[in-house]
Design a protein around this nucleic acid. Structure first.
Lengths: 186, 186
DNA sequence: ATACAATTCTAACGAACGTTAGGTAGGGGG
DNA sequence: CCCCCTACCTAACGTTCGTTAGAATTGTAT
């Protein structure tokens, strides 16, 4: 009967519900209804509601982030960052929802203290990572750290636009904005 | 017995709860407990939970936004935007929470369709407004619209940092980032 | 065929939810 | 003194929640 692995189907539907209604707004009953299984089925695969939510953030979301962070870069830094953002447009619906849910927790709009701490740890790695990427292109800038910070801030909004607000951002607009911040670097 | 107007006290506590636990995570009982009043007291002043939430967004949040939008500007555009962001640091705790809650609805992490539509209407006014402010300083730029868009995007992240993540942003950092985007304008 | 484990179910538990019915307390005007 | 309105209460309604007990079903190895 199962078209896919039941455990996976539950997680997919859960992502949808947590995304639309938040942790507290999501009910196990509604998940079960959409999965087309009985209610205790959920408890067969996940010990409780929180464990289901945690697995989505800890596994799915961070897998996504780490995949992104490991992208190889071209030799043109503006191309690289443009592609980095633009490719978010074509993320699968599932990945987009996972991403959105992660950002929700990152902004402490959902989830709990424990997940927030994991987010904080990750956040600390962001600036240094981009500084490493950009360093070669910023050698003749006196405000290199500020430029990296500004770029990361801009990226954050662009990511939110695509993933959270579910807008499509044209490549040209992304390139324009990144170019404005990285003006003078090449 | 009432130190303040009861209706106002309920709203203040409600802001706190909606902020920490979201709409679905907030219970009328817990609000009543923190207000130190009985449960039906809430229903004496507000018809139901949703009306309480809606009043916070529709009145408190948009009052805040409109107050911000009406700020007078100095003759130095970088000073103006730096002050615009920096002043968010010293928002009252209540206002900060209202702001945070508004952004949560804006990102459709909470609230309902109806509130989202109000947010969309507001959002449409943002770019034109800043374009009007910046136009005089951008006359010799060919990508003026892109610069305005980039600045608004940067502002969004800075606002989120202060209001949502509850960080303090030093004036100098704000000024640096805004200057990078507005490089060449004065 | 039979035994056993993995998978899925029906039914129900207690607790907490939003909301309401119907009361009490107190003060100001007649 | 009594009436009535405002402000507040206790108690309960019906519903839905997360979770579990325990049985039915299915698949698989012998």
């Amino acid at each position: 009967m199962a078209e896919k692995d039941m455990r996976e189907r539950i997680k997919e539907v859960a992502v949808e519900h947590f995304n639309s209604n938040g942790y507290h707004g999501t009910t196990i009953r509604n998940i079960a209804k959409d999965v087309n299984c009985s209610l205790p089925m959920i408890y067969y695969y996940y010990n409780n509601k929180k464990e289901l939510f945690d697995e989505i953030i800890k596994k799915e979301y961070f897998d996504l982030l780490k995949g992104q962070a490991a992208l190889l870069r071209t030799n043109n830094i503006i191309d690289f960052y443009t592609k980095f953002v633009y490719d978010l447009n074509s993320l699968s619906n599932y990945d987009k929802k996972v991403y959105r849910l992660g950002i929700k927790v990152y902004l402490s709009f959902d989830g709990d203290e424990e997940l927030m701490e994991i987010m904080d740890e990750w956040e600390k790695t962001i600036l240094p990572r981009h500084y490493q990427i950009l360093k070669p292109y910023l050698e003749n800038a006196d405000n290199d750290i500020a430029i990296v910070r500004t770029l990361v801030h801009l990226l954050e909004t662009l990511i939110v636009s695509i993933v959270v607000k579910n807008r499509f951002l044209p490549e040209e607009e992304i390139r324009e904005e990144i170019s404005i911040v990285l003006r003078g670097c090449e």
